[in-house]
Amino acid sequence: MVNDFPQALTIAGTDSGGGAGVMADIKTMQENHVFAAAVVVAVTAQNTIGVTDFMAMPTKLIDEQFQAVAEDLKIRAVKTGMLADSQSVKTVVANLQKYDFGPLTVDPVMIAKGGARLLAEDAIATVRDELLPLATILTPNLPEAEVLTEMHIRDEATMQLAGHRLQELGAKNVIVKGGHETSDTANDFVLLENGESFWVSAPRVETNRTHGTGDTLSSAITAELAKGADVKTAIQRAKRYVSATIANGIEVGHGHGPLNHWAGRQLKEEDD
């Protein structure tokens, strides 16, 4: 019975404000009934107003965190978030190739809600060339998809084109998130490994309580994969969960406030 409980791993940076990064990942996985472990790649000084500073962890410590997790836990699914710089990305890639942690969700975090850069410019190519080919699921927002594909995304047709280009870069399954659009619904384009494509949508909520949305979606997907869900089901359940965390918001902070990660309990009550 040891290690029988579903376990997932987040590889990302911290958020001292509690709304994004490793903090949001752990909350999300816990609320979706999965035990969460973490490899901290960077530490940030931030809150709902913005990021003041961050520091990447020494690569030796990143390696040691991976080893510690692998020696004791049974990780069934893993995700990446903020990876800071090129050397950190390379270290994470090497460890993901060394240890079998199950399906990988890559959230290519580049810029914080307040505009602070969370991925060094020279690391973008490393993410594109070395990390994306390992991805079971890739979850970029529109600005991130534009950077990775080097194209301008202006409508649903170009979202679909971007999805195909990202798949050509090596990601097996792709979600191009439409949260930066201005329509009445938040529409995400999904392209699966088998060629199937579809849209997942939710009513857009007028709120600035959306800090950590990308982290939460990728973590919810990872949690579902850790429990054994297939990719399509994991994406659909995660989208529903994130929509609930936004729609049932909480008032914390003076800027881009965090999501209500407890909303998952309300979803379970509805299902029951």
Score class of each variant (00 low, 15 high):
E181Q: 15
G114H: 02
G170A: 06
H152C: 12
T136Q: 04
L138F: 11
T158S: 13
A120W: 12
D107R: 02
I153A: 04
A120S: 14
E146V: 09
H211T: 06
M151Q: 15
E121L: 06
G102D: 01
T149E: 01
V200D: 05
A116V: 14
E168L: 01
A135W: 08
L104V: 07
V106L: 03
K98Y: 05
G178E: 01
T213Y: 06
F198H: 12
N141G: 01
D129N: 09
L169Y: 00
R204M: 02
F189T: 07
N194R: 11
T149S: 01
H180I: 13
K172L: 04
D155I: 09
H180M: 01
W199C: 04
R117S: 07
E181G: 15
A120Y: 10
A171M: 14
W199G: 03
L169S: 00
E181M: 12
P103T: 05
A120H: 12
S201D: 01
L148P: 08
L148R: 06
V200S: 02
T213A: 03
A162T: 10
I124H: 14
Q167S: 06
V109T: 11
A116M: 05
N173M: 11
L142C: 10
L166A: 00
F189Q: 10
G163W: 10
I111P: 08
E156S: 13
E181S: 15
G114F: 12
P108M: 09
F198E: 11
P108W: 04
K113I: 13
R154I: 15
D107L: 04
S197Y: 05
N141C: 15
F101T: 11
R204Q: 03
L169P: 05
P143S: 07
L161W: 08
T213K: 01
R154F: 14
I175L: 00
L132H: 00
A116C: 09
G195N: 10
A145V: 07
P103V: 04
E206H: 06
L119V: 13
I137L: 04
A202Y: 06
K113M: 14
G170S: 04
L169G: 05
V174P: 02
V147F: 00
W199V: 09
V200E: 02
E121Y: 03
E144R: 09
G178A: 06
E130D: 14
D100S: 07
T182R: 15
T149G: 00
I111T: 13
V109K: 10
A171R: 10
K172C: 07
L132E: 10
L148W: 07
L138D: 14
